[in-house]
């Protein structure tokens, strides 16, 4: 094979996977360019973990659209405590609890936008909600809650206090090198403190380069409708939105 043939073949193999293949080697290591590229990706992922979630900005954007947002914090006081104490990230601080109690008004579904492990990922929340809302016609959607230093289970307390039948937490996932802005949606019917992960449905890897907004909205719209109609979520509620009619469980 000529050098050009080899180069072209590696390019074709690289198109089959996002993995870092076909880089060759310099001695036993990688080229300076590849070493620096890895460093940039790691820096992006690290910064995503520590980027503060600008809840006020997001609330202003929502207000411009005529939507009301409620800003709360978890019991974890800062990022270090959040990382070391997952239990604190699952509960509201006292101020947040009292605030939401004062706002309680029963509704079908409440959306929580939470930083989780990547505040960068919250950029995908509004574009997703824009395409999702038309699928929720007829449902009573409560105010949007913006939560910092939050874990998924924080939504249980939020949903319970706001008397929502269903809570959907849109939260930044653990950043990988090739996906520092990946967002997940966790759906929990009958939210209250103590719900387990088995009682939730998860739609993961929401970002333009992963699961796009339209696809994520289609899946979420189906799960939300089904969850409210059947009064369940979690392993009992499967995403059969692609299944052919008449073949349950196929």
């Amino acid at each position: 094979m000529t050098d050009r043939t080899i180069t072209r073949l590696w390019q074709e193999l690289r198109e089959l996977t996002p993995a870092r293949i076909g880089t060759g080697r310099v001695g036993t290591s990688v080229s300076t360019a590849d070493s620096l590229a890895f460093g940039v990706d790691h820096a992006r992922a690290r910064d995503a973990v520590h980027l503060p979630f600008d809840t006020q900005h997001l609330a202003d954007v929502l207000a411009e659209r005529g939507q009301h947002a409620l800003i709360v914090r978890s019991a974890a006081s800062d990022r270090r405590e959040y990382l070391l104490r997952p239990d604190l990230g699952r509960h509201l601080d006292d101020a947040g609890r009292q605030y939401l109690e004062s706002k309680a008004r029963s509704c079908d579904v409440v959306f929580v936008i939470a930083d989780g492990l990547s505040a960068l990922a919250t950029e995908h929340a509004l574009p997703l909600l824009d395409v999702l809302r038309p699928r929720l016609a007829g449902l009573a959607v409560g105010p949007t809650v913006l939560a910092t230093q939050a874990r998924v289970a924080l939504g249980d307390e939020v949903g319970h206090l706001l008397q929502a039948k269903l809570v959907v937490v849109l939260i930044g996932e653990r950043p990988g090198l090739s996906s520092s802005d990946s967002m997940a949606a966790y759906l929990t019917y009958g939210p209250r403190v103590g719900r387990t992960d088995a009682e939730r449905n998860c739609v993961s890897n929401i970002r333009p380069a992963g699961l796009g907004y339209a696809s994520a909205a289609a899946t979420l719209g189906y799960l939300i409708t089904q969850s409210l109609a059947r009064g369940i979520s979690g392993i009992a509620l499967k995403d059969d939105s692609d299944a052919p009619p008449g073949l349950p469980g196929a």
């Binding site: 996977t17 996002p18 993995a19 870092r20 293949i21 880089t23 990688v30 590849d34 890895f38 990706d41 790691h42 996932e173 653990r174 950043p175 990988g176 090198l177 090739s178 996906s179 990946s182």
Partner: peptide, 14 residues
Amino acid sequence: PGADDVMLNYQSTS
């Protein structure tokens, strides 16, 4: 490959 596991989202050895 490149120490970057693109499925599990963590870094191991290359």
